[in-house]
């Protein structure tokens, strides 16, 4: 087909140029992704990490851990709940205003999405177990060994 080209001057090279441009763009996307993912590595925290290396207040992060038994307190407004999350080493207070997921109870695991500011985690959203089959990914493993330890230590 090359013989019928409209622009014979660049006949041999157009395909190579296209390939080069496409590859360059894809490599750029890959590098950009790698760079961004490296920053993302600190998106998920457990209590001891969030205390040791607190994220900036304007950054949206996830906090995972077990809800300490006896720590859940309903605020008088009826929609805010305060509780303490632990990873067995450290405890941090969490405040959440909203409708709690059905299976969110004391002693269970939780992943909270929100912001960390001045020693308080304000959650916009709680990801709790929906049922036996649906557990936030970060909580797996924590529900077995860590969880039992966490619960044992905080009783």
């Amino acid at each position: 087909m090359a013989g019928f080209s409209v622009v014979p001057v660049r006949a041999k090279h157009q395909r190579l140029i296209l390939l080069g441009v496409a590859l360059a763009a894809l490599v750029a996307a890959g590098l950009l992704a790698a760079w961004a993912l490296r920053n993302q590595a600190s998106y998920f925290y457990v209590p001891s990490e969030i205390i040791a290396k607190p994220p900036e207040a304007d950054r949206s992060v996830r906090l995972g851990g077990m809800v300490v038994r006896g720590s859940m307190k309903n605020a008088p407004d009826g929609v805010t709940v305060n509780f303490i999350v632990t990873d067995g080493k450290q405890q941090v207070p969490v405040r959440f205003a909203g409708i709690k997921p059905a299976l969110f109870v004391e002693g269970s695991g939780v992943v909270a999405e929100g912001h960390w500011q001045d020693g308080l985690f304000t959650a916009d959203n709680l990801l709790a177990k929906h049922d036996e089959k649906y557990t936030p990914r970060e909580m797996q493993g924590m529900t077995t060994d860590q969880a039992h330890k966490a619960i044992a230590e905080t009783k």
């Binding site: 998106y43 998920f44 949206s60 990914r137």
Partner: peptide, 14 residues
């Protein structure tokens, strides 16, 4: 062995 979650702060701007 490292648990990481990647969420909207990565996907949306990227």
């Amino acid at each position: 062995g490292v648990k990481v979650s990647v969420g909207p702060p990565y996907f949306t701007p990227m």
